[in-house]
Design a protein around this nucleic acid. Sequence first.
DNA 1: CTAGAAACAGTCGGGATTGACCGCTAAGAC
DNA 2: GTCTTAGCGGTCAATCCCGACTGTTTCTAG
Lengths: 209, 209
Amino acid sequence: MVRTYSHAPRTRQERTADSRALILDAAVDCLVEHGYSGASTLVIQAKAGVSRGRLLHHFPSRDGLLVAAANHLATNRLKQTEERAAARLEDAPEGPERVDRCIELLWTTFHEPHFWAAMELWTAARTNPALASALRPEERGLHAAIRSVTDRIWGPEIRANARYDEMRKLLFTSMRGAAMPYTFEDRPPSTDPHVELWKATARRMLFDE
Amino acid sequence: MVRTYSHAPRTRQERTADSRALILDAAVDCLVEHGYSGASTLVIQAKAGVSRGRLLHHFPSRDGLLVAAANHLATNRLKQTEERAAARLEDAPEGPERVDRCIELLWTTFHEPHFWAAMELWTAARTNPALASALRPEERGLHAAIRSVTDRIWGPEIRANARYDEMRKLLFTSMRGAAMPYTFEDRPPSTDPHVELWKATARRMLFDE
DNA sequence: CTAGAAACAGTCGGGATTGACCGCTAAGAC
DNA sequence: GTCTTAGCGGTCAATCCCGACTGTTTCTAG
């Protein structure tokens, strides 16, 4: 069957950009919904609502598609975190009371779709060298960006603390480690006992002594 | 082709136990080598060196096999940790010097094959309810056991410390979180900068103030 | 000792997945 | 205006994987 293009006339650049974004968004969604092994090209193309030809034209191999999805995810994840941070930063208090708010805010970023998508990619990267090479530089940049966002969340006052850097690293890794079991636990992460632990530890590290 | 059994005569119980162990060990190996999606029943049966009939007789479905592999892994992981701990505990000093040794020992458990196998299962469990249900009780038991092993590693002196429990939880989750990026990083985990951070933090939590 | 079930061995069909491929349309260079 | 090529649409062959199934041997209960 032959079908004429129904799109409004567009430049090639626009078309390519649209197609890629459409497909990559779908790929990330599928990663979240079905996991790495369930994110087949067929499922992705269905989710994106594109033809097989269109998908394969832009991403000739599944590996390449998922590598691109990894990069796509990194930039999006950062953008989202920045927006969210900006939104919740306005009425944030200073001093010790700010600690609790910050920890709660940071903890939420560890059970969002983007986090799970990233985890799928990390896990898959362990046995997929192409994916690992793609992830390495991307995650480095992302990490630096995450750090700057985190710094803004905590605010200049806390950031000036001598123990701030240690606390930041410790909480970041601890939260990631605590988030993992929620792949199979179904209770709400917001009630995680670690939250209180983090609050107490952060307060002690920053304000005691 | 018809082939007579070449095995020495054995009871059914023994045979079943042998077959299951053989297959489950292979399944865990495949999980480590090829990841969850690469651990197909065909690959596992090849690794185990068993016929298709033998594999399917004991594990009629791939899901069931991987669920069983999860349980198998849990018990083995614990056993191994206990042995290792016992071996390295003998000449361990007491007091602050013990802290460094303990942290190094604990950190090694986060880049062993068993850890990666568990991570594959956790990740897969997120989009696989059957696996998630199997993991939940198993991990609960494992967690309790891990805790008791950890307690013995730290020793009674440190364990008596008021902040011990907080420190233990914090380090455990932080190590897990710090271990994840090593799916795509290829530098040696033993040089991870977090190690120094953990040592400093633990010492301060336990002995300062 | 004998029946019946467990413990295999090996084959096969159905379904899913991947990427090659052929053909067409429209964008953009000249 | 024409010509080249990017951007698709849709089909197909090859492959892989899972689990059903058939047949055979060994254990074990009675």
